[in-house]
Amino acid sequence: MATEAQGAVEHADGMPQLDFSTYPNQIFWLVVTLVVIYLVLTKIALPRIASVLAERQGTIANDLAAAEDLKQQAVEAEEAYNKALADAKAEAGRIVAGARADIQKDLDDATAKADAEIAAKSAESEKRISEIRASALESIEAVANDTAVEVVKAIMPGAEDGKAVKTAVTARMKG
């Protein structure tokens, strides 16, 4: 510590840290500094930061609660939507089934009617056919009868006996 007196300002010959003549100065200004920083921190900075952090915490909590709420609402909306969808599907199914049943019924009616008409028409036709056949048979019999009478008259004149011929023809036609 011998040389500090003359040479301290130009070149630090010893350790400036051990130059005890500057200690009161450093300690005084350090204490001033620490007190100023302490006052600034406790009066302004720390309460402000603490309040900002608390406020943010509160905001985040609120936002989370709101988000939870909205999520709940979304779930409810989805449920309602699903229910409406299911209802609509059921309704549509019912309408389809009803329509199908109506159509089936109409179809059955129409088929039955058509069947009945067809049956009636074919019965009529059969009737007419059988009438025609009966009349044809009668005509054949009459023609056969007449022919037979004529044939008999031609073969054996005078032996015409219409009645006997007719009986014979009828028997013949039946047999």
Binding site: A8, V9, A12, M15, P16, Q17, D19, S21, T22, P24, N25, Q26, I27, F28, W29, L30
Partner: peptide, 20 residues
């Protein structure tokens, strides 16, 4: 690391404004 007065070249008393 030398402590020196901000103004002038005088001795360093406890209240002297220095580079510290």
């Amino acid at each position: 690391f030398v402590v020196k007065p901000l103004f002038g070249d005088g001795p360093i008393a406890w209240y002297t404004p220095t580079n510290v």
